[in-house]
Design a protein around this nucleic acid. Sequence first.
DNA 1: ACCAATTGGTTCGATCGTACAACCATGCAT
DNA 2: ATGCATGGTTGTACGATCGAACCAATTGGT
Lengths: 159, 159
Amino acid sequence: MSDDDLEQALALQGRISAFVRAFGLHQPDRTPCGTPVPTSEAHAVGELDRDGPLTQSVLGERLRLEKSTVSRLVSQLTARGWVQRAERAGDARLVWLELTSEGRRAAGELAVARAARFADLLRNIPAEQRPAVIAALTTLVHAANRQPSAAAVSGAAGG
Amino acid sequence: MSDDDLEQALALQGRISAFVRAFGLHQPDRTPCGTPVPTSEAHAVGELDRDGPLTQSVLGERLRLEKSTVSRLVSQLTARGWVQRAERAGDARLVWLELTSEGRRAAGELAVARAARFADLLRNIPAEQRPAVIAALTTLVHAANRQPSAAAVSGAAGG
DNA sequence: ACCAATTGGTTCGATCGTACAACCATGCAT
DNA sequence: ATGCATGGTTGTACGATCGAACCAATTGGT
């Protein structure tokens, strides 16, 4: 690793860490909508709203969570009345997840609240820089997805 | 909010959310170094290593944490032998925090491990795009810091 | 000089987010 | 059939964080 690389790595680390803190991503609960919705539930609902019925394992892949975590998460969502566990002809092991109508309504509200929050963030970025910021994040996501053990070696923003 | 703004907000939200998942930031524990160090402890040690002795409340401001959270965090670090709570002439309420020599050693190791992880990430970004990515993140951090209730309305990456 | 409000910390209780291991059921392949 | 792989559930443990209640030292007014 050259000195230049090291410097860039340190810069990257500092920025990401700072953003996580500044944007409040280190606080797990709370979401800005009527009923407070835990973050993880919001993520799951968003995924189901966007990509139709999914099996639990697929949802887990999307969210990068262990199957046990997903199982519990789904239980909470069904308790809340937002998700239904269903079966389908075919593989009897699979649990299919779909939003209830109530769940779709909630997903919509959450999407609006979320968009508002991010719109606020954008408002603090000069308009001409916005596309560049979004492009850079896209690059970053691709890079992260290419990392070998992204999930396994995790947590390093702070460590 | 114009359609264009909305579109950008949605893009931003999606990218950030994707990055958090892809890079594994949603998993609180684990850091890639000898002894597994919880993320929050690593952050705190890094801060103390960089900016000398701090009081607890200042550390809390830096990390954007409640004083109760900081108190516990510091207890864990002293139990680990990395931090010393000290007093100083002057305001007797203040608790000054400083790294022990063991703590400084650990901070160094953590920094190395962290840099390696981020260097990996950089390796997956074309060299010519790296400065742009870092610049974009800088912009993003500034924007987040300008947000009114960053801490209060938090958690919205998923909600 | 005194008392009230403020500030820095600690402790308690709660919730969220997640992983790993052990386990069961179903399905698939030899 | 038998044995391995896959999808889920439950139990256990930890990490991260907050708010409220509380105490001690300080500071500002009157």
